[in-house]
């Protein structure tokens, strides 16, 4: 069951020009102030929902669904990858990698465990980290006896998860601007909290407390 869409309020005045972002190398405060901080566009055009598209891709290898998902997500993924410090060309290289992974790994998409946006976010983040760092990542053993697996989600949890993405988007639009800004930088930029503090001129404690407040409002479990 897919929850009805909660429209995320369109704020046309803050449509970001993320393509104009300077690479993260430029650390001067001046460069930051010239940048749009409101990375969240606060408008969504999803119809049908990403979850429905992902299920068509997973179950029917539906290229039309993939094309629709591409149109919704590829420009956002490119903006995300550029915000992470790479140039336009590198962002498109990683983007290609991410889109192919979405197609080839669709079989692992399970809307009961993670919504399509969450699943795509983790693929994009991992692809970017892998490409930049080439470090060894542990492949966790599902047989690990130490790790107690979570019980399978019940029907209620599944409804919760389907609604969660929409509710989260709505909740993000209602955050105070100062928290929204830190949330954006913490997820969308290539900056650690210390680097965000240095760039914005805020105390590190202020950055962390705004982020904690925002996360706590979005998910009570994250307080």
């Amino acid at each position: 069951m897919i929850a009805p869409m909660v429209p995320c309020v369109a704020d046309k005045t803050s449509v970001p020009i993320i393509a104009q972002f300077q690479p993260a190398r430029d650390k001067s405060l001046l460069a930051l102030s010239a940048r749009p901080l409101h990375i969240i566009a606060m408008e969504r055009t999803d119809s049908p929902s990403l979850d429905a598209l992902m299920l068509r891709i997973r179950d029917h290898r539906d290229r039309t669904a993939f094309a629709a998902l591409f149109e919704q997500m590829a420009p956002r993924l490119k903006a995300y990858l550029m915000g992470k410090g790479g140039g336009a060309q590198m962002a498109e290289d990683v983007l290609q990698n991410v889109m192919l992974k979405i197609w080839h790994r669709a079989v692992t998409f399970n809307p009961e465990k993670a919504s399509a946006t969450t699943w795509i976010f983790t693929i994009a983040r991992n692809a970017r980290v892998d490409m930049l760092r080439k470090t060894i990542k542990p492949v966790l053993d599902p047989e690990e006896p130490d790790l107690q697996p979570n019980p399978e989600p019940g029907a209620e949890d599944i409804v919760d998860l389907a609604q969660a993405s929409e509710q989260l988007c709505h909740a993000i639009t209602t955050l105070p601007d100062e928290q929204k800004e830190i949330l954006n930088l913490a997820y969308f930029s290539d900056l650690s909290h210390g680097e965000i503090a240095a760039k914005t001129g805020l105390a590190l404690g202020t950055v962390k407390s705004r982020l904690r407040l925002a996360l706590g409002k979005l998910r009570k479990d994250l307080r």
């Binding site: 995320c8 449509v15 970001p16 020009i17 993320i18 990375i39 969240i40 566009a41 606060m42 408008e43 969504r44 999803d46 990403l50 997500m73 956002r76 993924l77 903006a79 995300y80 993670a114 919504s115 399509a116 946006t117 969450t118 699943w119 795509i120 976010f121 983790t122 994009a124 983040r125 969660a164 993405s165 989260l168 988007c169 993000i172 639009t173 949330l183 954006n184 997820y187 969308f188 996360l215 979005l218 998910r219 994250l222």
Partner: peptide, 11 residues
């Protein structure tokens, strides 16, 4: 999940 929401609303 929060990251996915931020991404889906991103520019």
């Amino acid at each position: 999940q929060v990251g996915g929401a931020v991404l889906s609303m991103g520019g």
